[in-house]
């Protein structure tokens, strides 16, 4: 019961956090907390097999799938707090509260007298016990579950499949497109410049410098620029001067184009 009293508040808080968190990623992580806590509770209640399944299938597979889809859809997308359906939020909370109270009242009523415990059923081992029941009484349901899983896999494949409407561009097409872009818009033909390489910074968030000393925007990933988590070279330069106080401030200016070209 100690585990329960420790975990129960954690789970409730995590669940409430799930509902309240604005970023979907946070929701997923909080859900992971709830699930792992649940797994522990399963173990507490003499269900070691389900404890393992909960960790492996739910937390390991399903939740990772969620995160994967979140990455596809866009991690940054956070919900706006404005409710679009009038009265929905208030009604949901009130109804939820009422429902919860009723449910708690209901289950608190349930009393089956003495708790039997699973020590007898698990006498030959929990997994063996489950297997014995699963492959005898629930055999048909088990087989149907197999069919369900196959169908679900097929369905997901059908849903995710996208018809190709235009022929796939070949390498020659791409090259021709590049040349056309250059002819029409003067777009640079060659590869984009790499990030700047400095004495103390050579990460992808460091822009290269153009010959006139200004940062080259194309040397950075668009995503990093959008996030605003890039370093500005002049800023870094002053940092460097302040720390080192040597002549190194010249080096970035000379290196940057060379670094860009040298790569």
């Amino acid at each position: 019961m100690i585990a329960f009293w420790i975990l129960a508040p954690v789970m409730v808080v995590a669940a409430l956090g799930m509902v309240l968190a604005r970023k979907a990623v946070h929701c997923a992580l909080l859900l992971a907390v709830v699930m792992i806590s649940l797994a522990v509770l399963y173990a507490v209640q003499d269900a070691p097999f389900l404890f393992a399944v909960q960790i492996i299938v739910y937390t390991g597979a399903i939740l990772m799938l969620f995160l994967f889809v979140l990455m596809l859809v866009g991690v940054d997308a956070s919900d706006s707090v404005v409710e679009t359906i009038r009265g929905q939020r208030l009604a949901s909370v009130l109804l939820g509260l009422g429902f919860g109270v009723l449910l708690v009242l209901g289950v608190a009523q349930v009393s089956v007298g003495t708790v039997v415990g699973l020590s007898e059923a698990n006498a030959g081992g929990n997994i063996e016990g489950i297997a014995a029941v699963l492959f005898s009484t629930y055999f048909l349901a088990f087989e149907v579950t197999a069919a369900l899983l196959i169908t679900a896999a097929l369905g997901a494949m059908v849903l995710a499949h996208r018809e190709r409407l235009t022929p796939k561009a070949t390498q020659a097409d791409l090259a021709a497109q590049r040349m056309r872009d250059y002819a029409e818009h003067g777009k640079h033909l060659g590869p984009l410049p790499p990030p700047g390489v400095y004495a103390r910074h050579n990460a992808v968030d460091t822009p290269a410098l153009l010959p006139d000393g200004s940062p080259a925007p194309t040397s950075l990933s668009r995503v990093l620029t959008a996030r605003g988590s890039t370093l500005s070279p002049p800023g870094s330069a002053t940092q460097v001067e302040r720390i080192g106080g040597s002549d190194e401030d010249v080096a970035p200016r000379d290196d940057a184009p060379e670094g860009g070209a040298g790569r």
């Binding site: 509902v19 929905q88 109804l95 939820g96 449910l103 708690v104």
Partner: peptide, 16 residues
């Protein structure tokens, strides 16, 4: 009771 509370929180989450 914990189960009921979690269920209700989930339901409210679905609705909001």
């Amino acid at each position: 009771v914990l189960s009921a509370i979690l269920f209700t929180i989930g339901a409210v989450g679905v609705l909001t």
